[in-house]
Amino acid sequence: MAKIYPNSPISSSPLASISAESQPATLTVWRKSLLFNCSGFTVFDSKGNLSFRVDNYSSASRTEIVLMDAAGKPLYTIRRKKLSIADHWHIFDGDASASRPRFSVRKHVSLLPSKELAYMTTYGREEGIIYGIEGSFSHRACAVYDDRRRQVAEIRRKEPVAGVAFDGDVFRLIVQPGFDAGLSMTVVILLEQMFGSRVRDLKD
């Protein structure tokens, strides 16, 4: 198997350095926790340094997922809305100790074929979409657009290395300058919850 991350997983790349770059940041997302008996995600920057992680123990809540930095500090908490018929999630800053979420994310539901996957609004302002997600998550080919139709993040398949192709558990996350890389990773987590073929692995 081709090497996914070139450097030690304990080295880290500060979140600020990702968001402040003048060029798009290319992250490698691995749908695997580095901890034994956990499921989740491990995310590396272009230099192979650990940037983000999601570690879900088997006894973890089915309705709450925490995105952490390399040191284990909570950046965002994703919590499913109670009594929600369709997929409806709230995003909190940090460990969700704040009384109010920051964002709401809903799965797009339509009887007709659509390239729309989900949309994000500011919590409490459900009528004003600030980010839309389109494409195919199962094919690792989708993008996030802001309210002016500018692409701020993209999910794509990882290129083969030395002739060895990666499966869908390893893919790229391209983040445009000025967009929060952590927030873009919350989109990945939510798309996995909504559309992932192995969604039960992350919830159980």
Results as ranks from 00 to 15, higher is better:
residue 1 M to R: 12
residue 2 A to H: 03
residue 3 K to C: 05
residue 5 Y to N: 13
residue 8 S to F: 03
residue 10 I to G: 01
residue 15 L to D: 00
residue 15 L to V: 12
residue 17 S to C: 08
residue 18 I to R: 04
residue 18 I to D: 00
residue 18 I to N: 02
residue 19 S to Y: 04
residue 22 S to F: 14
residue 22 S to N: 12
residue 22 S to Y: 11
residue 24 P to K: 10
residue 25 A to P: 05
residue 26 T to E: 15
residue 26 T to S: 14
residue 26 T to K: 12
residue 27 L to H: 12
residue 28 T to V: 10
residue 30 W to Y: 05
residue 31 R to N: 06
residue 35 L to T: 11
residue 37 N to A: 08
residue 40 G to C: 10
residue 41 F to L: 11
residue 42 T to V: 06
residue 43 V to R: 02
residue 44 F to C: 02
residue 46 S to D: 11
residue 46 S to L: 04
residue 50 L to Q: 06
residue 54 V to Y: 02
residue 55 D to H: 04
residue 56 N to Q: 12
residue 60 A to Q: 08
residue 61 S to Y: 00
residue 62 R to P: 06
residue 62 R to T: 13
residue 63 T to E: 12
residue 63 T to K: 08
residue 63 T to F: 02
residue 64 E to C: 11
residue 64 E to Q: 15
residue 64 E to L: 09
residue 65 I to A: 02
residue 65 I to E: 00
residue 66 V to F: 02
residue 68 M to V: 05
residue 68 M to L: 13
residue 69 D to A: 12
residue 70 A to L: 07
residue 71 A to K: 13
residue 76 Y to L: 15
residue 76 Y to K: 08
residue 77 T to H: 03
residue 77 T to Y: 03
residue 77 T to P: 06
residue 79 R to F: 00
residue 81 K to E: 00
residue 82 K to I: 03
residue 84 S to D: 11
residue 84 S to K: 10
residue 89 W to C: 05
residue 91 I to E: 03
residue 91 I to A: 04
residue 94 G to D: 09
residue 96 A to Y: 02
residue 98 A to I: 01
residue 99 S to E: 09
residue 99 S to Q: 12
residue 101 P to G: 09
residue 101 P to K: 09
residue 105 V to G: 00
residue 106 R to I: 05
residue 107 K to D: 01
residue 108 H to P: 05
residue 108 H to G: 07
residue 110 S to P: 12
residue 111 L to C: 06
residue 114 S to V: 14
residue 116 E to Y: 15
residue 117 L to R: 07
residue 119 Y to C: 01
residue 121 T to N: 01
residue 121 T to W: 00
residue 124 G to L: 01
residue 125 R to K: 07
residue 126 E to L: 01
residue 126 E to T: 02
residue 127 E to R: 00
residue 127 E to N: 02
residue 128 G to Y: 00
residue 132 G to E: 03
residue 135 G to K: 14
residue 136 S to H: 14
residue 137 F to C: 07
residue 137 F to W: 14
residue 138 S to Y: 01
residue 141 A to P: 09
residue 143 A to T: 10
residue 143 A to V: 09
residue 144 V to Y: 04
residue 144 V to M: 13
residue 145 Y to I: 03
residue 146 D to R: 04
residue 146 D to S: 08
residue 150 R to L: 04
residue 150 R to D: 15
residue 152 V to K: 06
residue 152 V to N: 05
residue 153 A to N: 07
residue 157 R to M: 02
residue 159 E to Q: 14
residue 159 E to P: 07
residue 161 V to S: 14
residue 161 V to A: 15
residue 162 A to H: 11
residue 162 A to S: 13
residue 162 A to R: 10
residue 165 A to P: 07
residue 165 A to H: 13
residue 165 A to Y: 06
residue 168 G to H: 10
residue 168 G to N: 14
residue 170 V to T: 08
residue 170 V to S: 09
residue 174 I to Y: 11
residue 175 V to C: 09
residue 176 Q to I: 09
residue 177 P to Y: 10
residue 179 F to Y: 12
residue 179 F to I: 04
residue 183 L to M: 05
residue 184 S to A: 15
residue 186 T to H: 06
residue 186 T to E: 04
residue 186 T to C: 15
residue 188 V to H: 03
residue 188 V to R: 02
residue 189 I to N: 06
residue 190 L to F: 08
residue 191 L to N: 07
residue 194 M to G: 09
residue 194 M to S: 09
residue 196 G to Y: 08
residue 199 V to C: 11
residue 199 V to Q: 15
residue 199 V to W: 06
residue 201 D to H: 12
